[in-house]
Simulated assay, not measured.
Amino acid sequence: MDTTFHTDKGVFNHRTAAVCTMDGHVLLHRQANDSYWALPGGRVLLGEDSKTSLMREMKEELGVQVSVDRLLWVTENFFDYRGMPFHEIGLYYSISGAMILPLWQKGPFYGLEGKRLVYQWIPLEELPSLTVYPSFLQEGLVNIPQSTEHIIVHR
């Protein structure tokens, strides 16, 4: 069971995400019908730690085994999505290793879940011209912190 709870006042979501960079690019994804980008990852399951969740999500979505390096950001993210207020706790980890090399390609591509999610390696210098959520990532992905940062985002 996902740690996502729907109430009459909004949605609480616990998410983990991967910061995967290679050759001056970062791997992003978006819902096929959305115009904004985000980091790949997903919802943490009840009773599952965030690192295990991230490894599971990357395997399910992209078919790759990943090693989770270190926690970069802990976020409290408040936003509206499709008319519903969200309160999201996000844990953003760097990942690395040869296991991500098969994902390296030019242009958009789809993962194992079909055409629901569009993935693409985006040059870091193009981030300012894109809509990326949470918004701190446009700057944060270019300047990865040396230690874990706690960020509160109200969008």
Results as ranks from 00 to 15, higher is better:
residue 71 L to W: 03
residue 59 K to I: 05
residue 153 V to K: 03
residue 57 E to T: 09
residue 118 V to M: 12
residue 56 R to Q: 11
residue 95 I to S: 01
residue 113 E to W: 04
residue 108 P to G: 11
residue 135 S to R: 08
residue 48 E to S: 06
residue 84 M to A: 01
residue 102 P to Y: 10
residue 118 V to A: 04
residue 86 F to W: 14
residue 36 Y to W: 14
residue 37 W to H: 06
residue 118 V to L: 13
residue 6 H to T: 14
residue 100 I to R: 09
residue 137 L to E: 02
residue 122 I to W: 01
residue 55 M to I: 11
residue 125 E to T: 01
residue 131 T to F: 06
residue 128 P to D: 03
residue 73 W to D: 07
residue 132 V to A: 06
residue 132 V to S: 08
residue 120 Q to K: 14
residue 125 E to V: 10
residue 25 H to S: 03
residue 80 D to T: 14
residue 148 T to G: 00
residue 120 Q to H: 11
residue 93 Y to M: 02
residue 85 P to R: 01
residue 53 S to C: 13
residue 10 G to R: 14
residue 71 L to F: 02
residue 73 W to S: 08
residue 92 Y to G: 01
residue 78 F to T: 07
residue 47 G to N: 14
residue 68 V to D: 08
residue 79 F to T: 05
residue 99 M to Q: 15
residue 53 S to K: 02
residue 46 L to W: 06
residue 48 E to M: 12
residue 148 T to S: 04
residue 126 E to R: 02
residue 49 D to C: 12
residue 56 R to Y: 05
residue 27 L to P: 08
residue 97 G to R: 04
residue 40 P to Y: 07
residue 89 I to C: 00
residue 93 Y to S: 12
residue 7 T to G: 15
residue 26 V to P: 03
residue 84 M to T: 15
residue 18 A to D: 09
residue 88 E to D: 02
residue 11 V to Q: 13
residue 20 C to N: 12
residue 17 A to T: 10
residue 151 I to D: 10
residue 109 F to R: 05
residue 129 S to K: 04
residue 51 K to P: 02
residue 41 G to L: 10
residue 82 R to W: 01
residue 85 P to S: 03
residue 120 Q to R: 13
residue 147 S to M: 11
